[in-house]
């Protein structure tokens, strides 16, 4: 018989590895934060410049051309962020000789993307209803809920990141004039902070 401590460690590690997607890349989080921050910067420039103050009466997102441009930037940021996360996580799983597509990773993705895709569709409805000031809070809230939901199936840091996004989203809903700033803090700065925490703890 092996030592009981070893035996228990074995059991615990198997339970973790079979339920949690542990290959999520921290570096991808940092990069996603940088993309989001740059995207938010561009959007800020387009929306507010040359008025360059935030606050009431400065926003005129009803111009069709600006709308299309903002959507395009958002789409580029989204594709870059998901693409980077996919590639870097796949690399990480190879490095740790873990399976990338496993029951655990599928459960993680499902838990994350059901709220996130609902949030995306909801945001399109907000555009349709011209409720632009609610888009930043809605994306933050749905993303936060997705992260909290998915945190059961991956690294624990994700839960706090989700709570952070949720909190910012609710704040942004009460102060919609500063929506873009909350959005930049949530998708930009929080991603960089938690991504680097995950990188130092799990990636190296």
């Amino acid at each position: 018989m092996r030592k009981p401590e070893q035996e228990l460690a074995e059991i615990k590690s198997m339970m973790e590895r079979s339920t949690r997607f542990l290959s999520l890349s921290g570096l991808a989080g940092v990069l996603a934060g940088i993309y989001a921050f740059v995207g938010a910067g561009i959007a800020y420039y387009w929306i507010y410049f040359p008025a360059s103050t935030y606050g009431k009466e400065t926003v005129q997102i009803n111009r069709a051309e600006l709308q299309v441009n903002l959507l395009a930037v958002a789409l580029v940021v989204l594709v870059l962020a998901i693409g980077t996360a996919y590639l870097l996580s796949q690399q990480k799983s190879q490095r740790n000789s873990q399976q990338f597509w496993s029951p655990a990773s599928k459960r993680f993705l499902l838990a994350l993307f059901i709220p996130v895709i609902s949030g995306g569709l909801f945001s399109f409805a907000l555009i349709h209803q011209s409720a632009y000031e609610l888009i930043a809070p809605a994306t933050l809230i749905f993303y936060g809920l997705g992260l909290i939901n998915a945190s059961h199936f991956t690294l624990g840091e994700i839960k706090n990141l989700g709570i952070g996004q949720l909190f910012l989203g609710i704040l942004a809903a009460f102060f919609p004039d500063f929506g873009l700033i909350y959005w930049a803090i949530g998708f930009g700065i929080l991603h960089v902070i938690y991504g680097s925490m995950m990188y130092y703890k799990h990636d190296r």
Binding site: E7, E10, I11, K12, M14, R17, S18, Q99, P103
Partner: peptide, 26 residues
């Protein structure tokens, strides 16, 4: 007692079900 059986059972304690190929990989 066997470590493979111990691992199989550990996995099934926390997963409602698990398929043959996923067992093989993990």
């Amino acid at each position: 007692e066997n470590v493979i059986r111990l691992r199989i059972m550990s996995i099934l304690m926390v997963n409602e079900q698990y398929d043959f190929n996923s067992f093989k990989e993990i």
